[in-house]
């Protein structure tokens, strides 16, 4: 983390920390002399101005934090799949899952769900495929085909090696909701 970011986090969080600690101490020891003194001070004109300044500061910090959050792109886990000196390609977990889900559309499967765990240090991925069979099929042949397709697709399209594949297929029951690819 860069120094300016550390200072931003420190300045925005420190006051909240202090206020939080004061609040807890006040609740635990309401009759302590310091608590009484602070309570009396906050009732004065100067104390009310102090409350206004602190409250305004907290509102500004909240607005900046919300603004910063909105400015950041929404991502899941990210993996770098190719580097060329200063340039690189990164891929989001959601992109890998959608790539595989669309590829598996050519098989007689419905309600296909694909979950991917990216092993970022090794450029590999664990893949979990779940789906319902739309037709009678030889399961072992289908699983082999799916395994080959997933490994080939990951390697060719995204340069990711398949680490582990878990395929869970079950027959489609009549009346069951069907999500199509």
């Amino acid at each position: 983390m860069k120094v300016w970011k550390k200072w931003c986090v420190f300045s925005s969080m420190f006051l909240q920390f202090v206020l939080g600690v004061i609040g807890i101490l006040w609740w635990c020891w309401p009759q302590a002399s310091l608590a009484v003194t602070i309570s009396e001070f906050l009732g004065t004109e100067l104390g009310r101005w102090l409350i206004l300044v602190v409250a305004s500061y907290l509102v500004i910090v909240a607005i900046f934090s919300l603004g910063w959050m909105l400015m950041q792109p929404t991502t899941q886990k990210v993996m770098t799949i190719h580097r060329d000196h200063a340039s690189k390609i990164q891929v989001d977990q959601k992109a890998v899952e959608n790539q595989l889900r669309l590829t598996l559309g050519k098989y007689d499967l419905i309600n296909v769900k694909v979950r991917v765990k990216l092993l970022t240090n090794h450029q590999r991925a664990d893949v979990f495929v779940q789906g319902d069979l739309a037709k009678n099929a030889d399961l072992s042949v289908l699983e082999t085909k799916i395994s080959q397709t997933v490994a080939k697709d990951l390697k060719e399209m995204l340069r990711i090696d398949l680490s582990r594949l878990n395929v869970s297929l079950q027959p489609y029951h009549y009346g069951q909701k069907a999500t199509l690819i």
Partner: peptide
């Protein structure tokens, strides 16, 4: 262009 980073957010048809 000396530095280029491409982040793939999603794959769609």
């Amino acid at each position: 262009l000396v530095k280029f980073e491409m982040h793939i957010n999603d794959v769609k048809t």
